[in-house]
Amino acid sequence: MTMFIPDAFRQRYGPLVDDEDAFLACLDVLLPKSFRVNTLKSNPDDVKKRFSGYGIQIKQMEWYEDAFVSENPDIGATLEHFTGAIYMQELVSMLPPLLLREELKDARFVLDACAAPGSKTTQLAAMMGNRGVIVANDSSYSRTRALKFNLEKTGAINAIITNQDLRNFPHMQFDAILLDAPCSAEGTIRKNDKLFYEWSEKSIRSQSRLQKQLITKAFELLAPGGAMVYSTCTFAPEENEAVVDWLLQNHPEAVVEPIGEMEGLKLSPAVEEWQGTAFDAWVRKTRRIWPHHSNTGGFYLAKVRK
């Protein structure tokens, strides 16, 4: 193994995984390229035909018909990428919108709370067929520019960009909310090998404090009966289970919903206790994705209903 991995990182997560060696080894392997078919401009069958014509091998995911993986480095030089018929997106990043699939069928007013650079927003727009309204918010103005570019490229007509700190967001009621929270991003190590040089447990604690504020505010913005997905791309229980646990302590009316199995993508149980503190039993319904299980990035998912 060539990658530098901090000892504290190994000590934290080694005991949480089924196979520590496989987990650590996987972090040093580059992620395969993946993309999503943008159904606002094309469809999976058409893309399969065209790529077959190019002689580019692509593999459709069993758990999501719009998701594909390819070893070919030239996916970005295809006509489909140029026209926005496909969108380069990490597989695990397609999961949060997918968990809202049923709700999005007739949702009229949806919030993507931390939207930039817009991978998930454009997916939401496609899943909604451009109907209804998505408020795509990001606290960073400069990041809303990338968001705008991607909304334009994919043809996401039903999205409105706002630039607010979520904690100061005016009171509104959304049918569905996606809170893909800012996080320490440990799960993205396979595409950012500098990550561990800036990694610290202190930063995890400060992210956790922010995430607790964000999840509380997002839940308040949810209409009764509405559903929210909380997700991160990190392993730290402080930023995952502890955040959902915090919401349940402060909003006992919040209901954690089970996350169904996905064919060909292993979802693992949540962490039940961390550093001596046991989490609310409902937190067990949330799910983790470990990189070495299905050759993806690391991820955490929780679905909450009001």
């Binding site: 209804g132 408020v135 809303t144 996401a156 007509i157 409105i160 960009i161 607010q164 967001f169």
Partner: peptide
Amino acid sequence: YLGPERAIGEPRVVSVGIT
């Protein structure tokens, strides 16, 4: 911009839909 039929009053909007 071509956007949703109804925009929102607040918070302040950066942009709507696509150009």
